[in-house]
Design a protein around this nucleic acid. Structure first.
Lengths: 225, 225
DNA sequence: AAAATGCAAATTGTCGACAATTCTTAATAT
DNA sequence: ATATTAAGAATTGTCGACAATTTGCATTTT
């Protein structure tokens, strides 16, 4: 489960990139903190060149920001940034759902329905770690179902790590589990009915709801710190 | 005119990046060709390190594809790639138009209307180099009007160079000038009326038409080569 | 003759050192 | 005391050399 795109590290820079990405997403390297090339190269026991390349790749994912002759910093999480990110998600994943309704194979649709019913059991039995893993799995399948390689790459290699960063660092295990499940159900039905318009509309609403939910959480976190 | 985001080269890699990007977009470096680091470093009279960094950045723009231990190639232009690109444009620029209808200032809307009427004069007087410069200017202004920094960066720094590459290398100076102008007019009206839904719908249709137009051209080019 | 193997050449990946820029801090001037 | 300047330290940018991997070609093998 969730073993698509098994991006395996072949080069040294790959390893550094994956490791840094993980540490940034999970907050082990704090949001907003400076990334010293020398420091990281001693920490990971590689040359500065591979750290530089890893940082460049992190910049492509929008996980760090670099300024010439000054250095790189991990992005800071802000309500505005979250809004922007979810506006983009709404546009791109709405399109992905539309395309998935057109181009997913019958087998893929059935797998998606299967995933949903297995998740239904989990939710019913209170194993509600649904949000993180389950929600991501659902979205990934639809993204892959779009059959648009550029779109897939943009979302999977690019934006979704930032999405996860927001989720992880705001401690999302929210009460949104069951309602989100219903939303998923309706989206799958639209895809199964080969109704691109509806699939897109429902996906966009789903992401809007999700945005509102996480935004509320972020606002409360901001206040009592 | 068209002097936004004056990305100025501060470092040596910047210069190499900008130059290579220009040469790739304009076909001086052929689509699908291999990028030899050594060759380019002698050609530009810089070290391999800066060429490598430039190539990495070009990969982020989806202008080149890299394979570990093998090398980088300029992307190849295909009908499928074009379809994918325009599906993404439709989603992102549709959202941009929606946001522009909400967040553009009155001044920006007036400037946009001014641009349109000045272009109307040009079209009427047969100066119809409208398509390239004029169309891009129109789209850029709406993208910037979205006020979504991530979206702006994705489109301006990322996708639009690829869009230009398709346009330039397929010799777009098409007969679509006047009809596209009417589409622009209606989009601006929706933005001016602060009607986000309509602005998005019209922008999406505009891009769909544009896609069909360029796809037809690509098909004919493919056949008689 | 076709396929497999092994060596040589070429290309990419990694490294440490040097150059250029920015940041820090302390001294000086107003 | 504040602002300015200048020297020093630290960080990033660039370079050439070496290591690892891939590619091309010749040889061998079936």
């Amino acid at each position: 489960m969730m073993s698509f795109l098994d991006e395996q590290a072949v080069t040294s820079s790959d390893k550094a990139f994956f490791r840094m990405r993980k540490e940034i997403v999970e907050g082990e390297i704090a949001a907003g903190s400076k990334l010293s090339e020398m420091e990281l190269s001693t920490k990971y026991e590689v040359s500065r060149a591979v750290v530089r390349e890893a940082i460049n790749r992190l910049e492509s994912c929008h996980l760090v920001e670099r300024k010439a002759n000054v250095g790189a910093r991990v992005v800071t999480l802000t309500p505005e940034g979250l809004m922007e990110l979810y506006q983009i998600r709404e546009a791109l994943e709405g399109m992905a759902a539309r395309l998935a309704a057109q181009y997913m194979t019958e087998g893929e649709v059935q797998d998606l329905e299967g995933l949903l019913s297995s998740q239904f059991d989990e939710v019913k039995n209170q194993h509600s770690y649904y949000q993180e893993a389950g929600d991501l799995d659902f979205h990934y399948r639809i993204i892959l179902g779009s059959k648009n390689a550029s779109l897939i790459s943009m979302l999977v290699n690019g934006l979704y790590h930032l999405v996860r960063m927001y989720r992880v660092q705001l401690g999302m295990a929210g009460p949104r589990v069951t309602t989100a499940f219903d939303e998923h159900k309706h989206i799958v039905r639209a895809i199964s009915n080969r109704d691109p318009e509806l699939a897109e509309i429902l996906m966009r609403r789903h992401i809007q709801y999700s945005k509102n939910n996480i935004a509320a959480k972020l606002a409360s976190n901001q206040s009592h710190i």
